[in-house]
């Protein structure tokens, strides 16, 4: 009887672990739409994803929309994925990525944000794309400031 309990417990542990290791979902570029801005996601250099505790996957067209969505959404999050700008279609865990804001990164939502693999040299990235490496906190702040005040600069 005891053995059976252990077996059942073991089964549940395996099942729970299996459920936890949800990777990034494959995005159907051109038909999936962004959970925040509703735009059709077309650019694999910028797409991002958010997995909630319950296993629901939200897709976004950009780092900007992921940050803005998280600000307005309170449900617990498990994983965040960002596209590797230099390998379109490949996803990185947010904490294994450099976030860069640079003039040459024309992201779909206009705040010039993109992500890069941490195997790269951050100084070189910053020089090459003409920008700076930011923390996630800073990124969220930039997005919130820009969008809550209504983003309206002129050239």
């Amino acid at each position: 009887m005891k053995r059976l309990n252990v077996l059942i417990a073991g089964f549940f542990i395996v099942a729970v672990l299996a459920a936890c290791t949800t990777g990034p979902r494959e995005i159907q570029y051109g038909s999936d739409s962004c959970a925040h801005c509703l735009m059709t996601i077309t650019d694999p250099r910028f797409a991002t994803q958010l997995v909630t505790e319950k296993g629901k996957v939200h897709l976004f067209d950009s780092v900007e929309c992921l940050a803005a969505f998280e600000e307005n959404d309170v449900s617990p999050k498990v994983q965040r994925f960002v596209s590797d700008f230099e390998r379109p279609g490949e996803f990185l865990l947010l904490n294994q990525a450099y976030l860069l804001r640079g003039e040459k990164l024309r992201s779909p939502m206009g705040l010039n944000l993109a992500a890069f693999s941490t195997t790269k040299n951050p100084e070189e990235l910053a020089v090459h794309y003409g920008g700076e490496i930011l923390t996630w906190k800073k990124v969220t702040k930039i997005v919130v400031n820009a969008w809550q005040q209504g983003q309206h600069h002129s050239p």
């Binding site: 206009g110 600069h153 002129s154």
Partner: peptide
Amino acid sequence: EFVMNGRIRNNLSENNLRYGLHFMFSD
């Protein structure tokens, strides 16, 4: 994107893959 005072008149935009017209932050 970030356009001020644009006028779009009498154009035909069809069979594009995503949007016929798409604008953001363009007051």
